[in-house]
Measured scan of single mutants.
Amino acid sequence: MATGGRRGAAAAPLLVAVAALLLGAAGHLYPGEVCPGMDIRNNLTRLHELENCSVIEGHLQILLMFKTRPEDFRDLSFPKLIMITDYLLLFRVYGLESLKDLFPNLTVIRGSRLFFNYALVIFEMVHLKELGLYNLMNITRGSVRIEKNNELCYLATIDWSRILDSVEDNYIVLNKDDNEECGDICPGTAKGKTNCPATVINGQFVERCWTHSHCQKVCPTICKSHGCTAEGLCCHSECLGNCSQPDDPTKCVACRNFYLDGRCVETCPPPYYHFQDWRCVNFSFCQDLHHKCKNSRRQGCHQYVIHNNKCIPECPSGYTMNSSNLLCTPCLGPCPKVCHLLEGEKTIDSVTSAQELRGCTVINGSLIINIRGGNNLAAELEANLGLIEEISGYLKIRRSYALVSLSFFRKLRLIRGETLEIGNYSFYALDNQNLRQLWDWSKHNLTITQGKLFFHYNPKLCLSEIHKMEEVSGTKGRQERNDIALKTNGDQASCENELLKFSYIRTSFDKI
């Protein structure tokens, strides 16, 4: 039985969820670079991206490699990797027998973001014989899940209580170790020597080791999670996991709180800001991140802002960003909400898709409305799209047979046209069989910064309504002859009103 693990408890099935942008060198404390989270699957090609990484700022997932063999891993080693800020997950990587050479110096898994409450997941690794993470000293947050690894031993010899604050939620089941077939031998045991430290858990006094050649490092209890030197002297209180010299914040392997210019500090002093819960960055760093993602459509890219001495992905609820200094300031009234469309555009074809934009005031991208039916549609669209004030790209209304009016965009005031449909149009209306009105132009103002209007096959939309939009939106004169079809717009509506004058002759039985 794995020490510190839980057996036999019912657990939810383990679901495996399925960018080499360097964020800056980590400095003297770390020998390499800070790398983003990685999802490495199918083959070993991307694994080489770990070569210079000291910190993975995010998670590391290595999974679904069915053609790899043990010899493929023999020359692979990433000794610079010290810390993973989120979680480490391995799933069905064939041929991998140990992690001792792959990650010989991995010391800390912070667990800032977890995989279903777990910071370390080893699942269905069919050839893994031992973990071998002999320098792993601290899992700051989260638990361990090690399950269905039929060859995995050296679990009962690990004292997880020396690595985690609590072992109650560890789930370590259905491994070879369960069948008591392992016969784990710690260093020196074969020669009758006791080389590794022994600890007591559940009444068992057991030597602690990761492999037959690597003991588990056990520091004096007084050192807590700070770690200790090879001689057993406690590291500085700002260290986490390990250090090369005692009581020196510049000799830590990793930091308990924050890293700044080669030393570990309790908090980031001005003019620095907390970033990702582990390091200090200056304003320029946060500003660069903001600008890199301002026009990016890459998933996970955030326009970072500053709030409460932190550089964070977005302002919290009730705050909006001051564009001059990136500071989050309290909103006066309802907060603006910028919604970034991942692929640059979004099609609204149902109430469900409209709900995804609920509360958005600025759309960074283009909207395509293609709704053919739905219950209580006008009210639903207004509830979900009615706060949109600005669209950076274009607005396209296409084959939306259920629409009679666009009044559900009740606050839309600006279409920038930074991206144009077919390279020309910022407003595009095609084949809307029941569209009769755009907006009530006596109450609604709309500016279209650039781009043209396109109207074709809107049989109940009168040309007068379209011409009014040209005047109000500032697009009059931009359109070419064929942009607004004269014969297919309003051709099934009563669009022309003329005053009919009647004269009559009164007659009676005795007068003409």
Rank of each mutant, 00 (worst) to 15 (best):
S296I: 06
G95W: 03
L128R: 00
T194L: 14
P249F: 02
Q245R: 13
Y304Q: 03
V144M: 11
H226Y: 13
H226I: 08
N170V: 10
C264S: 01
L289H: 15
C335H: 10
N202F: 12
S143K: 12
L327G: 02
S324N: 08
F91Y: 06
R279A: 10
F103P: 00
N105A: 05
N135R: 08
N282E: 06
P187A: 11
L81P: 00
M38L: 07
C280E: 00
V55T: 04
W278M: 00
L90C: 11
N325T: 05
E147S: 14
E180S: 13
L152G: 01
L64T: 11
P197L: 09
L44C: 06
L233H: 10
C243K: 00
R279C: 02
W160S: 01
D165S: 05
T329I: 14
R297V: 09
R141V: 07
S161Q: 15
L120V: 09
Q276M: 05
A119P: 01
D101K: 06
F285V: 02
K193N: 06
N309R: 12
T211R: 09
C280M: 00
S225C: 04
M83F: 09
E181S: 07
I312Q: 04
I139D: 01
P334L: 07
Y118P: 00
W210L: 06
N179M: 05
G111P: 00
S244I: 13
E151W: 09
A198H: 14
T140E: 04
G333Y: 12
D169E: 14
V253E: 10
E97I: 12
C209Q: 02
N170K: 05
H28V: 08
P31G: 15
E231S: 11
V144Y: 02
L120I: 14
L260S: 05
P334D: 04
T320K: 03
A254T: 02
R110M: 12
F275I: 02
H28E: 07
R110N: 04
K217V: 12
G111I: 00
L50Q: 01
T267I: 02
L332G: 13
P313Q: 04
N195V: 12
R298M: 08
G183S: 12
D261S: 10
L133P: 02
S112E: 13
P79C: 03
N105K: 04
F78P: 00
C243L: 00
T140S: 10
S213F: 00
H290E: 02
Q245M: 07
D165R: 12
A119C: 03
G142A: 02
H236L: 01
D177C: 12
R69I: 13
Y118R: 02
N170P: 05
K100V: 06
Q303E: 15
N43Q: 13
I222A: 15
F116V: 03
L106C: 00
E314M: 04
R41I: 12
L332R: 07
R298T: 14
L106H: 02
H212N: 13
M125T: 04
D277R: 11
S225Q: 05
Q287V: 08
C219H: 09
K294G: 13
V121A: 05
F258P: 01
V108A: 05
H212Q: 14
N179R: 14
F103D: 00
H127V: 01
S296F: 14
S54L: 07
T194A: 10
V253P: 01
R69A: 14
L131W: 02
H28N: 07
L89G: 01
F285Q: 13
S161Y: 13
F123S: 15
N242K: 05
V126G: 04
L60I: 05
L89H: 05
N149I: 01
H290G: 08
I306K: 02
H307V: 08
F91L: 03
F205S: 13
N170L: 09
Y304T: 14
T229W: 05
Y87S: 02
Y118S: 09
R297S: 07
C228M: 03
C255P: 00
S54A: 05
R69W: 10
L152K: 01
L233G: 12
L106G: 00
C186P: 14
C228L: 03
K129G: 05
G183L: 10
I56T: 01
V281S: 02
T189Q: 08
I172E: 05
R145P: 01
R110S: 09
P104H: 00
N42K: 12
I306S: 02
Y154I: 12
C311V: 14
T157I: 11
V265T: 09
R69V: 07
L102A: 03
T329K: 02
P197Y: 09
K193R: 15
Y94V: 11
K217T: 02
M83Q: 06
F91N: 15
P70H: 06
L164N: 06
